[in-house]
Simulated assay, not measured.
Amino acid sequence: MKGAERSPWKYLILWLRLYFAIHYLASGLNYVIFGFVPDFSKAGQVGPYLEAMADIGFYQIIKYLEVLLGAMLLFNFAVPIALIVMAGISVTIIYLNLFISPAPRQLFTGIQELVLNGTLLLAYGGYYADFCRIKTRPFWFWEGLSRPGRRAELDH
Rank of each mutant, 00 (worst) to 15 (best):
L16P: 00
L114T: 08
I33W: 07
I93H: 09
L16A: 04
F139H: 07
G57Q: 11
L154Y: 10
C132T: 05
T136Y: 07
G125L: 04
Q112T: 08
Y31H: 12
L107W: 11
S90F: 02
I93L: 12
L12D: 03
I84W: 05
L68V: 14
G57S: 07
R137S: 10
G35M: 02
L73S: 07
M1Y: 11
N117A: 03
F99H: 08
T92E: 00
A71H: 06
Q112D: 00
L25P: 01
Q106G: 09
A123L: 05
G35R: 14
A4T: 03
Q106A: 01
I89C: 03
D130R: 11
Y128H: 04
F75E: 04
L68G: 01
P138C: 03
D155G: 02
D155V: 14
F20K: 11
A43L: 14
A43Q: 00
A87L: 02
L14W: 04
F34R: 15
S101V: 03
Y95L: 12
F141P: 00
F20E: 06
W15S: 13
Y11M: 12
Y24S: 12
V37A: 09
E51G: 02
G35V: 10
A52C: 04
V85W: 08
L114V: 06
A52K: 15
E66I: 11
A152Y: 03
G88Y: 02
Y124H: 02
W9R: 15
G110F: 14
D155I: 13
L18K: 08
F108M: 07
G88N: 04
G144E: 12
G44C: 06
I56N: 12
P138V: 10
L121Y: 02
I33H: 06
G47Q: 01
L68W: 08
F75Y: 06
A43K: 09
V115C: 09
W140G: 06
N117Q: 10
H23F: 08
T119V: 09
G88V: 06
F99C: 06
A87E: 00
W15Q: 10
L122G: 05
I84M: 10
D155E: 11
F131Y: 12
A71G: 06
Y127A: 03
Y19R: 13
M53A: 13
F99Y: 14
R105Q: 13
S146H: 11
W15N: 13
E143K: 15
G125Q: 10
L25K: 14
V46Q: 05
L14G: 04
E113N: 13
S41D: 05
S41Y: 04
W140K: 14
R150S: 01
S7V: 08
Q112I: 12
Q60A: 13
F131K: 11
A129H: 09
G57H: 09
G47W: 07
W15K: 07
F34Q: 12
I84D: 02
N76G: 01
P104R: 10
Y127H: 01
G28D: 07
V32I: 13
R137M: 08
